[in-house]
Lab assay of single mutants.
Amino acid sequence: VTLFVALYDYEARTEDDLSFHKGEKFQILNSSEGDWWEARSLTTGETGYIPSNYAAPV
């Protein structure tokens, strides 16, 4: 399992994006889409796309 942590807060701009807060942890589901990764929040259980430059490996 690849775990990442949010470096900044992010507010979803589309219904496919995932809103999150700094410090929140994610499981990365798909990182082959370039700058946007499909991720599941370990806090909320929700799935959506996150900007890859807002996350770092745990």
Results as ranks from 00 to 15, higher is better:
55 A>Q: 04
42 L>R: 02
30 N>G: 10
16 D>P: 04
18 L>S: 01
52 S>E: 05
42 L>M: 13
26 F>T: 00
32 S>T: 13
41 S>W: 01
12 A>I: 02
6 A>R: 00
47 T>A: 07
43 T>W: 10
33 E>L: 14
21 H>K: 15
46 E>G: 07
51 P>W: 06
23 G>M: 02
14 T>R: 14
49 Y>W: 15
38 E>A: 08
21 H>D: 06
58 V>I: 13
3 L>T: 10
53 N>D: 11
40 R>M: 12
52 S>K: 14
27 Q>H: 13
52 S>C: 11
7 L>R: 02
4 F>W: 14
22 K>S: 06
29 L>N: 05
52 S>T: 07
58 V>C: 11
53 N>G: 14
44 T>I: 01
31 S>Q: 14
10 Y>T: 01
45 G>K: 04
32 S>G: 11
12 A>M: 04
17 D>A: 15
2 T>P: 13
37 W>V: 07
18 L>T: 02
16 D>A: 14
29 L>G: 03
24 E>P: 01
22 K>W: 04
48 G>S: 01
11 E>T: 12
11 E>G: 05
9 D>I: 02
37 W>N: 01
11 E>C: 13
58 V>Q: 08
39 A>H: 00
36 W>N: 05
27 Q>Y: 14
31 S>N: 12
48 G>V: 03
29 L>Q: 06
9 D>R: 03
57 P>V: 07
8 Y>G: 05
40 R>K: 12
23 G>K: 01
20 F>I: 05
49 Y>D: 01
52 S>Y: 10
47 T>W: 09
10 Y>H: 06
57 P>G: 05
45 G>D: 05
27 Q>D: 08
51 P>A: 03
51 P>V: 02
51 P>K: 06
4 F>E: 01
25 K>C: 14
42 L>K: 03
30 N>E: 08
35 D>W: 08
19 S>M: 03
42 L>E: 07
19 S>F: 03
33 E>V: 11
29 L>M: 09
14 T>E: 09
56 A>T: 10
28 I>R: 03
9 D>T: 06
31 S>T: 14
26 F>V: 03
51 P>E: 02
9 D>L: 03
31 S>R: 13
25 K>F: 15
2 T>L: 13
57 P>S: 06
57 P>F: 06
15 E>F: 10
22 K>P: 03
58 V>H: 07
29 L>K: 05
20 F>P: 00
35 D>P: 11
28 I>L: 07
28 I>T: 00
20 F>R: 00
23 G>I: 00
24 E>I: 03
33 E>S: 14
4 F>M: 11
22 K>Q: 09
35 D>K: 10
4 F>V: 12
47 T>R: 11
36 W>C: 07
13 R>N: 09
29 L>R: 05
28 I>V: 09
1 V>R: 11
34 G>N: 12
14 T>A: 11
43 T>I: 09
43 T>N: 09
6 A>T: 04
33 E>Q: 14
42 L>Q: 07
12 A>K: 08
18 L>F: 09
58 V>L: 13
53 N>E: 10
36 W>M: 11
50 I>F: 04
17 D>T: 15
34 G>H: 10
24 E>F: 04
5 V>I: 12
40 R>C: 08
13 R>L: 11
48 G>R: 02
12 A>Y: 02
34 G>Y: 08
14 T>D: 11
50 I>K: 01
29 L>E: 05
42 L>D: 03
54 Y>I: 07
47 T>S: 09
18 L>E: 01
55 A>G: 06
10 Y>I: 02
24 E>K: 00
18 L>D: 00
54 Y>S: 15
17 D>E: 15
28 I>C: 04
23 G>D: 05
11 E>Y: 09
7 L>D: 03
56 A>Y: 09
50 I>Q: 00
13 R>D: 07
54 Y>D: 02
47 T>L: 09
21 H>T: 12
24 E>A: 05
37 W>H: 04
1 V>Y: 14
41 S>E: 02
14 T>G: 15
11 E>Q: 12
40 R>I: 12
52 S>I: 11
39 A>W: 01
57 P>L: 08
15 E>C: 14
52 S>V: 09
44 T>G: 02
34 G>L: 11
4 F>R: 04
49 Y>E: 01
12 A>L: 02
5 V>T: 06
12 A>R: 07
53 N>V: 08
2 T>W: 11
8 Y>C: 14
19 S>Q: 04
22 K>D: 01
18 L>M: 14
16 D>K: 15
44 T>V: 01
3 L>Y: 13
13 R>S: 11
26 F>W: 02
54 Y>F: 11
53 N>Q: 11
17 D>P: 01
14 T>C: 15
25 K>P: 06
50 I>N: 01
19 S>L: 02
16 D>Q: 14
47 T>F: 08
36 W>I: 07
53 N>F: 11
3 L>K: 05
4 F>D: 01
1 V>K: 13
26 F>N: 00
22 K>G: 03
41 S>P: 00
24 E>Y: 04
36 W>R: 15
57 P>Q: 08
46 E>A: 12
28 I>K: 03
17 D>N: 10
35 D>Q: 10
56 A>G: 08
14 T>F: 15
58 V>K: 04
51 P>R: 06
17 D>H: 15
31 S>A: 14
3 L>E: 10
34 G>I: 10
55 A>K: 02
51 P>T: 02
33 E>D: 15
9 D>A: 06
31 S>W: 14
12 A>N: 05
3 L>P: 06
11 E>S: 10
28 I>H: 00
21 H>Q: 12
36 W>F: 11
53 N>R: 11
3 L>G: 04
25 K>Y: 15
8 Y>M: 10
11 E>N: 09
3 L>M: 10
23 G>L: 02
50 I>M: 05
45 G>F: 08
45 G>Q: 07
31 S>H: 12
52 S>D: 03
40 R>A: 04
45 G>P: 01
3 L>V: 14
14 T>M: 11
16 D>V: 13
9 D>S: 07
39 A>I: 05
49 Y>A: 05
42 L>A: 05
58 V>E: 09
21 H>G: 07
35 D>V: 09
53 N>L: 09
37 W>G: 00
6 A>W: 02
49 Y>R: 15
6 A>N: 00
39 A>Q: 00
20 F>L: 05
8 Y>N: 06
36 W>H: 07
30 N>R: 08
51 P>G: 03
46 E>M: 14
48 G>N: 00
38 E>K: 13
28 I>N: 00
10 Y>L: 02
22 K>C: 08
49 Y>C: 12
7 L>I: 09
52 S>F: 09
17 D>F: 14
8 Y>K: 07
5 V>H: 05
6 A>P: 02
41 S>Y: 03
18 L>V: 04
33 E>F: 12
53 N>C: 14
52 S>N: 07
46 E>F: 11
30 N>K: 09
15 E>N: 13
40 R>E: 05
20 F>M: 10
36 W>K: 12
5 V>C: 10
8 Y>L: 08
22 K>T: 07
38 E>I: 15
9 D>K: 02
34 G>R: 11
12 A>E: 03
26 F>A: 00
41 S>L: 10
12 A>P: 05
1 V>E: 14
27 Q>G: 02
24 E>D: 15
44 T>R: 04
38 E>Y: 15
25 K>N: 07
18 L>A: 01
11 E>L: 10
50 I>G: 01
54 Y>G: 09
36 W>Y: 12
43 T>E: 14
54 Y>W: 08
2 T>R: 13
31 S>L: 13
54 Y>H: 09
34 G>Q: 11
32 S>L: 12
7 L>C: 10
57 P>A: 09
36 W>P: 04
37 W>F: 08
44 T>F: 02
48 G>E: 00
35 D>M: 10
39 A>E: 00
17 D>V: 14
19 S>N: 06
15 E>A: 13
3 L>H: 10
25 K>S: 06
41 S>D: 03
54 Y>K: 05
18 L>R: 01
17 D>W: 12
29 L>Y: 07
50 I>S: 00
11 E>K: 10
52 S>M: 09
20 F>A: 00
4 F>T: 04
12 A>C: 06
8 Y>V: 07
52 S>Q: 08
39 A>L: 01
55 A>I: 15
1 V>M: 13
8 Y>R: 07
7 L>E: 04
48 G>H: 02
8 Y>P: 00
46 E>Q: 14
22 K>V: 10
16 D>F: 15
